[in-house]
Nucleic acid binder design. Structure first.
Lengths: 352, 352
DNA sequence: GTGAAAGCGCTAACAC
DNA sequence: GTGTTAGCGCTTTCAC
């Protein structure tokens, strides 16, 4: 209001107004536990308040070598899977005084690499790779190199999914979850179980596929390549893949579909509906992830449960521990997953 | 690899290695169009590459008074409404060299205020209020004061929803959309149209309610308070609200429900299903927002369309224009909304 | 308990 | 076309 000069207020003006040195002003503003007499402290605080003083974080960061900035790298923040993780990360970050930068990589190596560089330039304190590692030629090495630079600088890096990076990680048990779900379908009497895979260059997608194959192998059931469909973790292309099933001779058609993630499973649900197939009467469907969405589709989706928001929280909590030099746990933490059976699966009907 | 000293590399070492002054080094690194001889430029670039030089953005920002950081304030980043907007913002931000900070306010004044202060301290270049303004005692004034500080500093601030803040804004036409949707229901023969409102302290929610009431008034239909149900923009409590409808005498029951947003409408769909009511046969339901989700619920949801991702894009584009002093458009830009009719609404059945 | 002064790493006058 | 230097605003030894 009354202030007529454009120049912004620094700690110098605060010190002046309080009649102390900048050193003293800094000591009360930065709330270190350095001893400052109570009257002096009050005068500084008062001066700061009167001037609407806003301590410049950038300047502070330059001195302290801590930016209080963390970043979460996601495939797409509007994908509910990543949105949930991000929410968990941001909650903990905020409580601890960190700001959260969100970076959409679209699972493109170039974008991911560029973000890591930008974050390094910014001296971000930590980077969380929420998505799985990309398996593309030379890429894991390139990324590791850049990440090593971040590490060398004192930045913390973790992953929240199966990844090529050699950094601490917290993960849900993708292999075990996929294996268990497949076993459950077998228990329900299914023998021809189709699997809609995720992007082939995504490590975590492949791990889930491995879990599916392991369960079949254990049950002595041959893996039929025709039942492994290509998906891309998004709903869009899934319908087409499912449609292909109609071309199979009835005796070769799967009685169950296991999709590598919930989005894909929901795409399958939609595709099947359009084909006039009833779920679970004509065919069972299940997913992986247990998005909030899984409970509100029709029929509600049987899926492998993982608490994504909590995964985000745990990740950020661990990142902070690393930054504080308090990280004692083992590098790789794997959380058990569990199966949630809802209405989209049922025991196989006896035919004929 | 071979580097054995911990000290990080600054532009000084790059200059040394290239055999030039820091000024020259800076001129090529910061890619200004300042003339530098080609051989010199190459030597600097080479030195930077060999040293794995990462220019310190914080230091740069201190000089240039530009942080290249923007923030989007959302109610909850895992709410698809905000997730879509955030995606649009981040896309444009990334293309323009900005990093995007996401802040979950949970529509709590204290959190919102705290974020704004933190962002001011960080010297964020811009702040985007994605959610609607909160109408709570004294709050609009307090927020405006803090925002004014950001503005004075040279930061840009915009809103993407009906808001109390006096800053540039891009908005979908909530009033018009709600009015139009209500008119459409009237056209379909509905006379008892219930409205499930949003949080009462949220400006944009109230604007939608106004639109609904305006349409009824224009049609000469008295507004019956019993048909205005309290919601909170989330799916959770909505079921309960809907359940109350069963208690009404059949001749007082609404034949259509208009929910103030899609999440609420979907909650209504779920509640009605549990009550055994068929949509749209027994009752029509429609929402507001046209989330991606609206197309995959059953029945697919009739709703007021607004392109949220594009709203985010437009918002960030405008923010950049403001920062560059190129914003010429009027303060308040209102986009028309349109109605998308899907399977959840139908003409009223002739009773008896 | 307080103050003076040296940088953190960069850019932008201002010389040459 | 290149170099010297003065800060941006803060924290932190080091004196007193």
């Amino acid at each position: 209001m009354g202030s007529r000069d454009i120049s912004s207020i620094s700690i110098v003006q605060v010190a002046e107004r309080a009649g102390v040195s900048v050193a003293t002003a800094s000591r009360v503003i930065s709330k270190t536990n350095y001893p400052v007499s109570e009257p002096t402290r009050q005068r500084v605080l008062a001066a700061a308040a009167e001037l609407n003083y806003s301590p410049n974080s950038l300047a502070r960061s330059m001195k302290t070598q801590r930016s209080n900035l963390v970043a979460v790298l996601v495939g797409d923040n509007s994908d509910p899977y990543f949105a949930e993780i991000t929410r968990g990360v941001e909650d903990v970050a905020n409580e601890a005084g960190y700001l959260t930068i969100v970076c959409n990589t679209d699972r493109k190596p170039a974008k991911e690499l560029h973000y890591v560089q930008t974050l390094q330039d910014l001296r971000a304190d930590g980077i969380i790779f929420a998505g799985g590692g990309l398996q593309e030629p030379d890429y894991p090495e390139q990324l590791q190199l850049k990440v090593n630079e971040v590490l060398r600088r004192g930045g913390a890096v973790i992953t929240l999914s199966a990844h090529t990076l050699q950094v601490p990680s917290i993960q849900a048990d993708s292999f075990g979850g996929a294996r268990q779900m497949t076993m459950r379908l077998l228990e329900l009497g299914h023998r021809r179980i189709a699997f809609i895979a995720g992007p082939s260059n995504l490590l975590v997608a492949n791990v889930r596929l491995q879990g599916y194959m392991a369960a079949l192998a254990e049950a002595g059931i041959p893996i039929s390549p025709g039942l492994i469909l290509q998906g891309n973790f998004s709903e869009s292309d899934t319908e087409r893949a499912v449609r292909g099933l109609a071309n199979l001779a009835p005796e070769h058609r799967p009685t169950a579909i296991f999709a590598a993630n919930d989005e894909t499973a929901i795409g399958a649900l939609l595709g099947l509906r359009k084909m006039g197939w009833k779920v679970p009467e004509d065919i069972s469907v299940c997913g992986f992830g247990d998005l909030p969405l899984a409970q509100r589709v029709v029929p509600t989706l049987t899926t492998v449960h993982m608490d994504l928001r909590y995964l985000g929280r745990a990740g950020m909590t661990r990142l902070i521990a690393i930054l504080n030099g308090e990280d004692t746990v083992e590098p790789l933490v794997i959380w058990p997953t569990s199966i949630v059976e809802r209405d989209s699966t049922s025991a196989i009907r006896v035919l004929s």
